[in-house]
């Protein structure tokens, strides 16, 4: 079922993980339990990765002209159980 898009690291992935780390470390040090609980922390991480990734891939795609290819991996059209 593994698709090429799923295992390929894109600019959006890198940006998403970086944003998640910054929010969790810096935000966690300031807001502590408002972020650092076993349900909020992972939720913040997932939201940061997905949203940042989506935004960065859109911008990256428009600049490089590969918008369609990248968006296909984001909306789940790639990587189906085949």
């Amino acid at each position: 079922m593994k698709s090429r898009s799923a295992t390929r690291t894109r600019a959006g992935d890198v940006a998403g993980y970086l944003v998640a780390v910054v929010i969790l470390v810096a935000g966690g040090a300031v807001f502590t339990r408002n972020i650092l609980t076993f349900n909020r922390g992972p939720a913040v991480a997932v939201a940061a990765i997905v949203l940042t990734g989506w935004v960065v891939d859109r911008v990256w795609g428009r600049r490089t002209g590969r918008d369609e290819e990248d968006r296909a991996g984001l909306d789940g059209r790639e990587g189906q159980d085949t």
Binding site: Y17, A20, L24, G28, F38, G41, P42, L74, G79
Partner: peptide
């Protein structure tokens, strides 16, 4: 209807949370 990126992020979520905290 989770995308590949969402699923992988979900899998990585507790690694990121654990390491960052």
């Amino acid at each position: 209807r989770m995308s590949d990126r969402f699923l992988v992020a979900l899998y990585h979520a507790y690694f990121l949370y654990g390491a960052c905290r």
